[in-house]
């Protein structure tokens, strides 16, 4: 066996498996996106089996782009959800990492408590938040608002300040099951789950920061903010890039949370829209799938170029 062929042989199973996993379903999606293919049709039963004779060309793409308003809404919502999660987790993660990057009593326990949400399975995360916490009647959200109303009611009985409080209307709890509010609920629960991840990475990075540089800056009379701005932030550029990349991979295909929080209420991202089409119109689902692949590729090229460079050296 030649010197070069053995390493190649060792990689072969992994490469072949991933190649099959990527190419076989994807080429089927591509094929289905060009034909008329539905799961149930009494009027046109011939559309129920995939066949080249049902060729539709770019018709499915046209249908998805121009005949449904859901597509643009789903894209916009996907970007809103992913974008908000990224911004919030990076800001919160930085703040908390700086906060606990010092020694204090119980630091180990604080770390353990903080990281815990990251290990909660997404299905449990969503069920827990939308029911036990955010439910407008029975969840903590509803109970807290009811309690507040009760207190205000009590204050109305008092002289003088009672007049002031009697002008207050009853507070209505926010329901997180409407279209827009359930997107906020999804953002909230994912931020809760992924901020610990950002904290962990930023903290690890902060610990490797060059302390002598900071001391020198202190001697030169730099204040805390300018040390943070000019020394810490550049040091954190790479971990921030990585937090953004890993989270983009996971959140562009966010599904379980949306399925659990918003089934049928109109809040959807791209994967969820594909899921809806898949219940009948496979052609449209496949065309939407191809758009999702294109979107993911744009993000992937951008991110891999950014991160790939720093990973290899």
């Amino acid at each position: 066996m030649s010197k070069r062929s053995l390493p190649r042989l060792l990689q072969t199973p992994a490469v072949v498996l991933l190649l099959l996993w990527m190419l076989v379903p994807l080429s089927m999606t591509l094929y289905f996106s060009f034909i008329r293919y539905v799961l149930n049709s009494t009027r046109r039963p011939e559309w129920m089996t995939p066949s080249l004779s049902n060729w539709r060309g770019l018709g499915n793409y046209e249908y998805v782009l121009f005949k449904t308003k859901d597509f643009w809404f789903a894209i916009q919502n996907s970007l809103l959800i992913v974008g908000s999660i990224l911004v919030l987790t990076v800001i919160l993660g930085l703040a908390i990492a700086v906060l606990i990057n010092r020694s204090f009593p119980g630091r180990g326990i604080v770390r353990v408590l903080l990281i815990s949400p990251f290990f909660v399975m997404p299905a449990v995360n969503a069920v827990l938040w939308i029911n036990m916490i955010l439910d407008p009647v029975l969840g903590l959200n509803g109970l807290a608002v009811a309690g507040l109303n009760h207190i205000i009611d009590g204050l109305r009985a008092f002289p003088v300040i009672g007049n002031f409080f009697s002008m207050w209307p009853e507070i209505e709890p926010i329901s997180f099951r409407a279209t827009q509010t359930s997107a906020y609920a999804v953002i909230m629960m994912v931020v809760w789950q992924w901020t610990p991840f950002a904290v962990l990475i930023f903290m690890t990075s902060l610990q490797s920061e060059d302390e002598s540089q900071k001391e020198a800056a202190t001697l030169d009379g730099a204040n805390a903010w300018s040390k943070f701005r000019n020394l810490t932030v550049p040091h954190l550029a790479r971990p921030i890039a990585i937090v953004v990349m890993i989270q983009s991979i996971f959140h562009l295909s966010l599904y379980a949370e949306i399925e659990i929080v918003s089934r049928g209420n109109g809040n959807k991202n791209l994967p969820y829209l594909i899921g809806e089409f898949t219940s009948n119109n496979i052609g449209a689902a496949s065309a939407t799938g191809i758009f999702a692949v294109i979107l993911a590729n744009i993000v992937a090229i951008f991110l891999l170029r950014m991160v790939g460079k720093s990973l290899m050296d």
Binding site: L26, S253, L270, P271, A292
Partner: peptide, 10 residues
């Protein structure tokens, strides 16, 4: 990064 939803039906 391949979106799972895109290849669900196949």
């Amino acid at each position: 990064m391949l979106p799972a939803a895109a290849v669900l039906y196949p």
